[in-house]
Amino acid sequence: MTQTEGIMAGKKIVQTAGRQALGSFAPEFAHLNDDILFGEVWSRNDLLSLRDRSLVTIVCLIAQGITDNSLVYHLKTAKENGITQKEIAEILTHAAFYAGWPKAWAAFNLAKTVWTEEE
C-alpha cells in the first residue's frame, strides 16, 4: 500500500505512489498522479468531501471493470474516509444494476476482505 497522509477533511493529501513506482520511468505521469490528482484534486475537500470522492472513485472503477490493486487501495481509503460496511454493501448493490452484476461480485469479494481485515 502507498503512503497517504492527510485523509481527514481540510488536510492536503500527500501521495508518493507515482514517484515510487514510475518516477524514473515516467516522471511526468508520476507528477500528475502524485501532485495533481492526489495533491490538488483530492485535496479540494471544501468542494467535495474525501468520503464522497472515495464513493465516486469506487463506482467509476467498478463501472470500468477495474478490480485490481487500485480498487483495493480505494476501498481501503474509503474505509479510512468513513464509509461503513453497510454503506459499501449498499453502494455496490446499487452500482451492480448500472455497472454490471459480475463487476459488482468482483468488487464485493474485495470489499469483504477490506472490511473484515481488522475484525
Results as ranks from 00 to 15, higher is better:
Arg51Asp: 11
Asp46Arg: 04
Ser49Met: 12
Phe108Ala: 14
Thr116Ser: 15
Lys11Cys: 09
Ser49Tyr: 09
Ile83Gly: 08
Ala95Tyr: 08
Ile66Ser: 05
Lys112Arg: 14
Ala9Cys: 03
Gln85Asp: 12
Val56Pro: 01
Phe29His: 00
Lys86Leu: 14
Glu87Trp: 07
Ser43Ala: 11
Pro102Leu: 03
Val72Ala: 03
Leu61Ser: 01
Thr116Cys: 14
Leu50Thr: 14
Trp105Glu: 15
Thr57Gln: 06
Leu110Asp: 08
Gly65Thr: 02
Gly100Gln: 06
Gly18Met: 00
Val59Phe: 07
Thr4Trp: 00
Lys76Glu: 08
Lys12Cys: 01
Glu40Phe: 03
Glu119Arg: 14
Gly6Arg: 00
Ala9Asn: 07
Ile83Lys: 07
Met8Ala: 03
Tyr73Phe: 15
Ser54Thr: 12
Asp46Ala: 12
Glu87Ser: 02
Ser43Ile: 02
Gln20Lys: 07
Gly82Tyr: 05
Lys103Gly: 09
Leu48Asn: 04
Leu37Thr: 09
Ala111Val: 08
His31Arg: 12
Leu47Asp: 07
Ile36Lys: 08
Thr113Pro: 06
Lys112Met: 14
Arg44Thr: 06
Leu48Thr: 10
Lys76Val: 05
Ala99Phe: 04
Glu5Asn: 02
Met1Asp: 01
Trp101Thr: 07
Lys86Phe: 14
His94Asn: 10
His94Met: 06
Gln20Trp: 05
Ser24Gln: 14
Ser54Trp: 04
Val59Trp: 02
Arg51Ala: 12
Gly65Trp: 10
Met8Glu: 11
Gly82Lys: 01
Thr93Ser: 12
Glu40Leu: 05
Gln15Lys: 03
Trp105Val: 15
Leu75Ser: 02
Leu37Ile: 05
Leu92His: 08
